[in-house]
Amino acid sequence: MVRWVNGGRGKLLPFLGMLLAMLTQSGSMVVIKFAMTDGINKYVMVVYSMALSSFFLLPFALFQHRSEGPPLTFSALCSFLLLALFVSSAQIMSYIGIELSSPTLASAILNLVPAFTFVLALIFRMEKVEWRNFSSEAKVLGTVVSISGAFVVILYKGPPIGMKVQFSTQLNWILGGICCVADSLFTSMWYIYQASVAKKYPAVTVILFFQFLFSTIPCGIFALISVRDPTEWKLSFDAGLSVVLYQAIGATMLRYVLCTWCVHREGPLFCAMFKPVGIIFTAIMSAIFLGENLGLGSLIGGVIIVVGFYAVLWGKSREENNDEKKGITGIKNKK
């Protein structure tokens, strides 16, 4: 990442943007855990956060649509709806996973997103594997290593590193880890499909607005079925309102806008390199605000995931460099 910082102002802004995006995501995990411990319903938080995010993005989406956005068609709206289903499913799984386990575990398992994205890209023929090519072998091996690391984090909690703290039961830890894996899978599906949608409809703010708006609908239906007590929907001027505002403005709207902008500027590979930073941010913030200590299993599994993660990135980066060299050589040969 150092070479991007040294690349001048043009590289520094995306670098700072992704750091801020990871910081807001880590803060979100800690805030969610704190809010649920304080008695705030997780499903209600999702609904209010999505609804407020779409409300705040509405004026920007209207401006972009009128100035440069292509016409809204029924096909485009159906695409936005499918993206919204991926987003809402990921959000619900994330909240359940954090409630049952810990923010640190959820942050560690999010590093499975590149591995799942690579597997899905292979299935939909967006990626290729040449088994005699070392870079392709690195991508496959890195994917297997990342998934193995996730199993270590889920199945082996281990003793706490530092002072003794009270953890959830082992069963809750495993179930929470499985929900976090589902969150990573839905996020990967969102990445794959978003790449296709963005080519057909490049107005980023409009896409995000409809995603948040349409996400509010299934999340609202799910919450109405799950939350029967009307008092749980009431928001007062206390910690509950602060949590919802942070989730809507910082963790949802700002993070998605920053990630989308950075992907547009520097590509998905650049953004993916910041995932392990989230583990560091989350571990520090969990220790400060929640009094949580890092478990040995989370540490070992997190290291394994990061090693596999960077193996995938290295293989992908080397493939792209080779493709660029082949392209330049092809141009020279034509001349």
Rank of each mutant, 00 (worst) to 15 (best):
Gln64Arg: 08
Ser75Trp: 09
Leu52Thr: 08
Glu68Pro: 00
Ala76Gly: 01
Phe60Cys: 09
Phe56Thr: 07
His65Pro: 00
Gln64Asp: 15
Asn41Met: 03
Leu52Tyr: 04
Gln64Pro: 00
Leu72Val: 11
Asn41Phe: 01
Phe60Ile: 12
Tyr48Ile: 06
Phe56Ala: 12
Arg66His: 13
Leu82Met: 15
Ala76Asn: 04
Ser75Tyr: 11
Thr73Met: 07
Phe60Met: 14
Leu62Ala: 14
Leu58Met: 14
Asp38His: 10
Ser67Thr: 11
Ile40Met: 12
Phe55Gly: 08
Leu81Arg: 04
Gly39Pro: 04
Met45Glu: 11
Val47Ser: 09
Met45Lys: 01
Ala51His: 01
Leu83Asn: 09
Phe63Met: 13
Pro59Gln: 08
Ser53Glu: 06
Met45Thr: 02
Gly39Met: 04
Tyr43Asp: 14
Ser67Met: 06
Gly69Leu: 07
Phe63Gly: 02
Pro70Leu: 02
Phe55Val: 14
Ala84Gly: 11
Tyr43Leu: 13
Tyr43Gln: 11
Tyr48Glu: 09
Pro59Phe: 13
Ala76Tyr: 12
Leu72Thr: 10
Ala61His: 08
Ile40Trp: 02
Ser79His: 11
Leu81Met: 10
Leu62Asp: 00
Leu52Pro: 03
Ala61Asn: 10
Ser79Phe: 03
Ala76Leu: 03
Pro71Glu: 06
Ser79Lys: 08
Lys42Val: 03
Ser53Asp: 07
Ala76His: 12
Phe55Ile: 13
Phe80Gly: 04
Pro70Arg: 04
Pro70Glu: 06
Thr73Trp: 00
Lys42Thr: 09
Tyr43Phe: 13
Leu58Thr: 11
Phe56Asn: 02
Met50Asn: 14
Lys42Phe: 03
Ala61Ile: 09
Leu57His: 05
Cys78Tyr: 09
Tyr48Gln: 06
Leu72Trp: 04
Phe74Trp: 11
Ser49Asn: 11
Asp38Phe: 02
Asp38Gly: 12
Leu83Val: 06
Ser49Gln: 13
Met50Pro: 00
His65Val: 00
Gly39Trp: 05
Pro70Asn: 02
Leu72His: 02
Phe80Lys: 04
Ala61Asp: 07
Ser54Gln: 05
Leu57Met: 15
Ile40Ala: 05
Val46Ile: 11
Arg66Ile: 00
Ser54Ala: 15
Phe60Leu: 15
Pro70Tyr: 00
Ser49Arg: 15
Leu72Met: 15
Val44Tyr: 06
Ile40Pro: 01
Ser79Ala: 14
Ser79Ile: 00
Leu57Phe: 05
Leu52Gln: 07
Leu58Trp: 11
Ala61Cys: 09
Ser75Leu: 10
Asn41Ser: 15
Phe56Gly: 11
Met45Pro: 08
Glu68Phe: 03
Phe63Gln: 10
Pro59His: 13
Leu62Cys: 14
Ile40Arg: 09
Leu58Ser: 05
Ala61Met: 06
Ser53Leu: 04
Ser67Asp: 06
Tyr43Gly: 03
Val44Pro: 13
Ala51Asp: 05
Leu85Phe: 15
Phe80Ser: 02
Glu68Asn: 14
Met50Cys: 10
Leu83Arg: 01
Arg66Asp: 03
Leu82Gly: 08
Glu68Arg: 13
Phe80Cys: 06
Val44Ser: 08
Leu57Gln: 09
Ser54Asn: 03
Phe56Arg: 05
His65Arg: 14
